[in-house]
Design a protein around this nucleic acid. Structure first.
Lengths: 98, 98
DNA sequence: TTGACATATAATCAAATAATTATATGATAA
DNA sequence: TTATCATATAATTATTTGATTATATGTCAA
């Protein structure tokens, strides 16, 4: 359980999770949002996947990530309190990942 | 906010917080519960205090720690899901900290 | 005031972490 | 099939972390 909270204990990962709460996103969407390198984002996503918090779906050349929190009420609850990323997600460049 | 979740992201600290949910405890109570060294416990308590999650009160030669979560609903919510430490706290040696 | 006990701090160290750059893999489109 | 784009992995590095031992501080009781 602390392993999952550890995932929230990093600003970038908390932002990733809050963003995925709005909708599923591909890696470059998250690069735009976070302002860190693409491999950096991929590393975080790998950890989140290992912790069982996200899942990936390839769609063409893009890989979309989304939350898998059905069986994790504590993480779900925690994310309720995270600042909304609605705005930032809506303002993503439309020419990415479509 | 991720700084506070980081506090929950360590097994020892999560256990400390769950234990303090039962009642206030002194350092050696927590040494017993956690099975790590006294300085180790003190270090974790220092971080928890710095994060604003606990406060200390000296009572004679003992220092009691207790939760300060009134203004942290997210941490409060998170701890709802942590396994109860009721048993372990009740089974503490009575000859400690009285 | 000295000794015992409770706690804090300092110093140290191995391991984990988060980031980067360089490179590899995988998919699509020309 | 080759170039391009999206993503993943490898290698590297600086920093943080969690633990330990040794020592200092603080409180009380004899």
């Amino acid at each position: 359980m602390s392993e999952q909270y550890k995932m929230l204990g990093d600003k970038s990962r908390l932002t990733i999770l809050a963003s995925l709460k709005v909708r599923e996103l591909c890696v470059y969407d998250l690069v735009d949002i976070l302002g860190i390198s693409q491999p950096g984002v991929s590393q975080h996503l790998r950890k989140l996947k290992a912790a069982g918090l996200v899942t990936e779906t390839r769609k063409g050349q893009w890989v979309y990530y989304s939350l898998t929190l059905e069986d994790k009420p504590h993480i779900k609850a925690a994310l309720e309190f995270a600042p909304s990323m609605q705005q930032q997600v809506e303002q993503l460049k439309n020419d990415c990942c479509q």
